[in-house]
Structure formats: C-alpha cells, structure tokens
Design a binder for these strands. Structure first.
Lengths: 346, 346
DNA sequence: ACGCCGCGCGCATACGATTGCCTACAATCG
DNA sequence: CGATTGTAGGCAATCGTATGCGCGCGGCGT
C-alpha cells in the first residue's frame, strides 16, 4: 500500500481520473437517476467500483450549491431542556426520517442573539424547510429574519399564531377547559391556576381558565417556580382545593412542595398538569394531565414542511386521569389508578 | 413598490450590480477582514448600504465549498428524550455559542439507520467538528463512518471509550462508589442496583457496584422499567433497604412505585439516582443523586472539538444528598432537606 | 460506398463566494 | 518631465457537482 499524504476529500474528478472517464460520466453514473444520457454497462461498473474503492463521498455543499434539496429540516426550539419539546423533537425526527429527511436542531435558549445566529445557519438553503417549535415570539428579529428564508416555515405549538406562517397547533383553550371541568365534576370549587402567561400557549390556557376562575399565580416555567407558587397559594386566606398547572413541569413542583409540607395529594389537594411528558405517568402520585397528539402533530408538521400537504389543522387534546386528582378530601380511585387510560403501566 | 417575481436569493452579483462595483469588491467589503486590498470609504459605505437594502445573505454552501469553516459543531445524541442529554445539549450549545459556533443536532434514536444518515449529513465539511453524546456503540457503521470524517470527533460521556476518539468523560465508577458509600454510612446493608448495562456508562457503574453487592436488576432506562424493577426487588425473600439506580429516570420509577405500594421513602426504603437531572431536586421526595460537572465537561468538549485544547480529562462526580435517603427506618434529616447543598431551593 | 442515426461519452458552463494577480489612475519623487 | 510608488478595484480561476449540448464512432439502409 502506498502512502497517501492527506486524503483530503475524494472528489468526482479523482474517481474520474482513476476510472479513465470524464467527471461528468462519474456524476451521471453515481446520480443513479434514470440516465438521461445512456451509459454502457461496463463503464458504469468500472465507475461504481472505483468510487467504492476510493471511498468517494458526494459533497453536499457542492450539491446544494447547484440547487439540490438538502433533505434537511431545520428545527428551532426555544428550550431543549423542556421535557415536552424533547418528545416533540423525537417525534419530528421520526416522521422526517420516514420521508427520507433528517432533522437538524438549533435552539434559541430564550436568547435573541442565539436564535438569530441560528436562523442564519438554517436559512439560505442549508435546509429545505424550517419548523418552529413552541413560542418564539420573544426573539425579536428571528421571525422577521425567517420571513426572508427561501423554503417553507411551519410553526408547531406556536400557541396563538399570528398567521405569519402556517401553524400546526392544538386547542389549548379546550384542553384547559377539560382540566377545569374534570376538577369541577369532582366537586372542587376553589381551583387555582399556575403558569407563565408570557408563553403564547400558556396565555391561551390562562384565558380559558379565566372563564371560570381568577386565582392566578404567575411564574416562570420551572419546577422550582411551581413549588414556590404552592407556598403563595396556601398562604392565602382561602386556599384552593385544586390547582390546574399550565404545564407538567410546574405540576411536578407543586407535587414536590405539597409532599414537603405534609399535604397529601389528592386527598388534601388535587393537581392537574398539561403536556403529559414521559415522567408524568410515574410522578408521585401519577399526574392527571392533558395530553396532546404529539405524534400526529409532528407528522402534520413534517408533511407541511416538505410540501406534501397544505392543511393547517388544530388538533384536539385528551384528558388523562391518573392519581393526582380526586374529590376534595377523598382518596383517588385505585391507589395506582389510571381511571381513563392504562397504557402507562409497564 | 414594484413587483419582484421570485426574489430567489440575493447574491453578491446582485449587490455588485446595484452598487456599481465588481462582485469581488463586494466580497472584500463584506468579508470585513483586514483588507488585503484597499477599499475607499465611499465604496465601502455604498456596498454596505446596498447589501443591507437588498437583504443580502451570504450563501454558506458556497463559502464552505471554498473551504471556509462552517462554524458549526455537529452533535450526535442517542436519545434527545433523555432529560440528562437535554441538559448536556443545552450546555454544549451555550459554550459553542461563546466561541461563535452553533450546534446542529442529529439523533440516533437507538436506530442504526438513522445514525448513519446523520453521519453522512454531518461529515464532509457540513460542520467543523462532531461531538458524540453518550454511548453510541450500538450503531454499527456509525463509528466506522465517523472515522472517515475530516474534522475532529470528540466523545462526551461515552462511558468506556475504546480510545478511538478523544473522550471527555466522568468517573462513573467513583460516582457509583460515592452513592454506595453514602448508603453504607447510613447503615444500609442490603443495597440493590437497577440499571441497563447495555449502555457503556451504566456498565461501569454496575461494575463499581459489584465491588460490594450483587443484587442487580437489569432493565431498560425508562421510569416504567424502574417501577417494574421495584416489584421484582420487593418480591424477593430478603428485600433491600436501599436501591442505587443507574440513572435519575429509573429512580423516578422506583419512587413512584414505592409510593403506589404504600412504601415510605426514605423511612422504609432509600433511593439514590445518578445524573442530577433538573427534576431530581423536586422529586417526591427530593432525590439524592450523583451530579456531574455538565457545564465544565461541555466546555471541555467544545474546546477539544474546535481545537482550542488537546486535553482529555476525566471529571469527578459529586454526591448531592437530598431527602430520598436516610438511615433504615428513620426520617430523613429535614423533610425538605438538602443536607449537602442548597442551591436547589427556589 | 456513402450518408444517416443513435449510442456512449466528453466539453464546457453554471451555482455563489473567495482570492491571487493584474490594471488604471493619481500622487510623489528624482 | 519621466519614473516610481501607492491606492482602488476589476478579471478570472477555483471549490465539487450537475447538465445541456455536441462530437465521434459504429452499424444499417439504399
């Protein structure tokens, strides 16, 4: 074996030279497509062989420069740390894959600067389409920037879309009403709401809550803030018997602080979440929450992004009753019970 | 406003035409670099102005074709859904940002095929470096494929690296010993281990556990499996008084099932986790766990990836004592207590 | 035997940005 | 006043791939 100094990158030209054909022939053979130009079987085989021997890899940059699709969907997400978005990304990636696309992810991390740099990366044909996950309203220049992008932009769970881009969304208001109705039907009369109305989707949930209640604590969307919110609520003169949290993460904080204060859930306090993150089913106690059809929504977003569909539907939520809600002062149904669904049990 | 049919993409040529200069001049002005060729102030201003007016965006593909760095770090992660990796990605992204790099993420989702497609995307100068998060041993062709990549490849939390690529890792064995020692010092004698030894890092933790115990339940890394593992352990003739989980996610499952069975933690059972995911501090009860210096490790990985450093250090873990561990049959210290650290309280 | 057709393939150019080299003009020097 | 230096900027090659167009050659028809 001879010493090859710096194998830098094997190009078509290299393959062509070795195979004793022109670079265009190599291109035609390797493109695989129905050859607009006929190639003899012997030549084709020779090219294919040398390409394999030389470990040729097409350069996507050069391909893209010629206008070829990158088969990449860019996803901009506000905060990867949010368990809900993690699941969403996973679903998005799975459905993209089924369509032969890959997902590249950049995240905004609640910082405008970052989001901007990201947008610059994703645009300009680095990827064929962009999916916005969650509410990215806070990024001032981002949306504006995105307007200049070539490919389609789809919003997924944007909350209250302003119609700037097609959106795949969920009926947040109805979801919150389902939670409130569930608590009402159990006999709760003093129901509080905890959430961060800065996020568009939470704002919609809050608005739906306001139709029947007005005991609101505003916090950032962390379990720690959820815990602190419980203290605020319980130190009120007439504390609630049930709390509807805007997200599961907040509900986790509520459950934690309730236990720390010696309060039993659901006997002394009922708690509902929103999102049905993976850990919700194994919370202590298992969390009653509102589930969204993540999988179907991700699929819709992918189809919209790659132009396979032009629909922008609003998906329905589903109440998942577990063990964190009960009649005031009563035990929940079975101690381990998922009244409505059971798929969570191992 | 005139009708602009298909603004396709504003190129330097367009800017040059409008600004009445040559395309090379536009390039020189916009590159910003110390001009090897002098440019008059008036020309520079004119170019800058028209570029802004026309909303010019450089095409990164064309840049990359000429060999320019993409300022992108590719991250390949096994499973975005894992809360631990979510935090890691966040840290990675932050540190990359500080160095003017962005992170693009692709995930393997435990599927070889997917990982391969991803590698193809990331290689070939689409990004300047690649960071592997977690154990990707299972992907057969991936590592091999990665060997052919131009840029540097760094493994982060790969567990037991095979030395193929430089690795930033954590002392998993010592971490597990810290947990076991903590439980021993509390007086526990029957300590069980729950984890998925298929993952390299968990395998190391298991090995360290084996130095002092042999009550092992093998499961996949989900909270549901953790819950099921508790049933297995408690139905044994001589059940453990403490369980060291290989990850926080498993510990969540253990806590859930313990509560569902009416078992009090930590009075009847002590539980330790591993990772210190964000929700660990607000588990019910707050989870005693092993923390890793995620931030420092992510920083090290970024520096290694972009060639700013050549060190491959092994980082130390830290025991974080919260409320899920106590002497057998005894209450934990303060009900809400973080004995060792307090930064978790809101 | 000559022209025509079609197969198989190479030439050349384009994509957008970078960069080495060269030109044109002005100012300054000898 | 001619030569030199410096300033300002254009020309064209280049990166790797795709593709329209055209060229040569062999076989077949008349």
């Amino acid at each position: 074996m001879t010493v090859t100094e710096r194998p830098r990158h094997v190009t078509m030209k290299d393959v062509a030279q070795v195979a004793r054909v022109s670079q265009s022939t190599v291109s035609r053979v390797l493109s695989g497509a129905p050859p607009a130009v006929p190639i003899s079987e012997s030549t084709r085989a020779r090219v294919l062989d040398t390409a394999a021997r030389l470990q040729y890899r097409p350069n996507p940059l050069a391909r893209g420069l010629r206008g070829a699709p990158t088969m990449l969907i860019g996803a901009i997400v506000r905060d990867v740390t949010d368990p809900f978005f993690a699941v969403a990304i996973d679903a998005l990636s799975r459905h993209a894959r089924r369509r032969d696309y890959s997902v590249v992810l950049g995240h905004a991390r609640e910082q405008a600067e970052e989001a901007l740099a990201l947008a610059a990366v994703l645009e300009a044909r680095q990827c064929d389409a962009i999916v916005l996950l969650g509410d990215v309203r806070e990024e001032p220049g981002l949306l504006e920037d995105l307007g200049a992008v070539d490919g389609p932009v789809v919003e997924l769970w944007r909350g209250a879309g302003d119609g700037r881009f097609p959106a795949i969304s969920v009926d947040n208001a109805d979801g919150m009403r389902q939670a409130i109705r569930h608590l009402s039907e159990l006999g709760h009369e003093r129901i509080a709401f905890v959430g961060d109305p800065e996020k568009a989707d939470v704002a919609v949930r809050l608005e739906a809550y306001r139709e029947s209640g007005d005991d609101v604590v505003t916090v950032r969307n962390t379990a720690q803030d959820g815990a602190a919110a419980l203290d605020v609520l319980l130190d009120r003169p007439n504390p609630p018997t049930a709390i509807a949290a805007a997200t599961d993460v907040l509900a986790f904080g509520l459950l934690h602080r309730a236990a720390a204060r010696g309060l039993r859930v659901p006997e002394d306090l009922s708690v509902t979440g929103f999102d049905d993150i993976p850990l919700a089913a194994t919370a202590v106690p298992a969390l009653t929450t509102i589930r969204m059809p993540i999988d179907a929504m991700a699929e819709a977003a992918v189809e919209r992004a790659i132009g396979a569909s032009t629909e922008t539907s609003v998906f329905a939520t589903e109440l998942v009753v577990r063990a964190s809600t009960a009649r005031p002062g009563e035990h929940s149904v079975p101690p381990e019970g998922d009244a409505a669904r059971r798929e969570d049990a191992p």
